[in-house]
Computed example of a mutant assay.
Amino acid sequence: MTHAHPHASPHPHRHQDQDQHRHQHDTDGEAEILDLDAEVLAGHIAAVTAWLPVQAPPHRIVDLGCGTGAGTFALLDRFPDAQITAVDSSAGHLQRLSRKARARGAEGRVLAVRADLDDTGWPDLGTPDLVWASASMHHMADPDRVLRKVHDLLAPGGLFAVVELAGFPRFLPENAPEDRPGLEERCHTASDRFHAEHVSHRGADWGPKLTAAGFTLDGERTITVNIDGSRSEAVGAYALGSLRRMRRSVADALPPQDLAALDRLLDTDSPHSVLRRDDLAVRTERTVWAARRKN
């Protein structure tokens, strides 16, 4: 899962080599989180693809904002005869996705296309039977325009699946950490305020938006995620990476005591590191809207 457009650098006057190094570091870090997301939530992604109300197995699929391929390969597993065009703005993500396709012997069935979906001119994506957008629509500058583009792109009777997580997952018990109980909830409150200002479409109800774009809503489902991570190294790494990314948006909003407690959780050498906890879980919700283009 990833957004399909790049963010402007917060340091526009930084030396170009430094900026490229920073961008590559951020992309690599995001790619690792996306891969962990795919591993930890694989069963729930499969449940979404199994639920899709397709009228017949699709032959042509487009994955918008494909990231490193969580949805792409779940769709390949669900529809083994399909050809998938995977679209993302990140060359690094697409390279990783292409390596996975080769490792699976599926390189002939996956076409990686680099594109900024906020651009008015899209590359030729064919006439797909199914378009999938997971955790990408809320990042669009003008999602209503993108919905209309997808509507016109689809084959008559084709299906558009919009999948969104309910914000960042939660990992810690409510009374954790011991020195600052409730820390994670306070981080989420600060994060929600930040994203309400900077990512205004996160948490949107996509049903009315889809019908306004000309689709017929064919179903909506919310899947509750609650995964015990006490014995999972992947869940620990997922929690660490996710909380590190959250820190970027909440650091200025947290009181010093909370920020210090969060930093202890993120310090892999600390006895308080999130990696040393045996009470982690992954708790979130994933909602999917299935909308059909009328014949």
Rank of each mutant, 00 (worst) to 15 (best):
P6S: 15
H7M: 11
S9W: 00
P12M: 09
H15R: 14
Q20S: 09
T27M: 10
L34P: 02
D35R: 13
H44M: 06
A47P: 07
V48D: 04
P58Y: 06
D63P: 07
G67Q: 04
A70N: 02
A74N: 09
R78K: 06
Q83S: 11
T85D: 11
A86D: 11
D88N: 11
L94S: 09
V110M: 12
A112S: 15
W122F: 11
G126C: 05
T127K: 08
L130V: 02
W132N: 01
S134V: 09
M137L: 15
M140G: 00
R148L: 02
K149D: 12
P156R: 01
G157C: 09
L159C: 00
V163N: 10
G167L: 11
P169A: 12
F171T: 08
P181F: 07
E185Q: 14
H188M: 14
T189C: 09
D192P: 01
R193W: 10
A196Y: 01
G214F: 03
I223P: 00
R231V: 05
R244G: 14
M246S: 03
R247T: 09
L254N: 10
P256V: 12
Q257T: 14
D258M: 10
L259T: 07
A260P: 09
L262V: 14
R277D: 01
R283F: 06
V288Q: 02
V288M: 01
A290E: 04
R292Y: 05
R293W: 04
K294D: 11
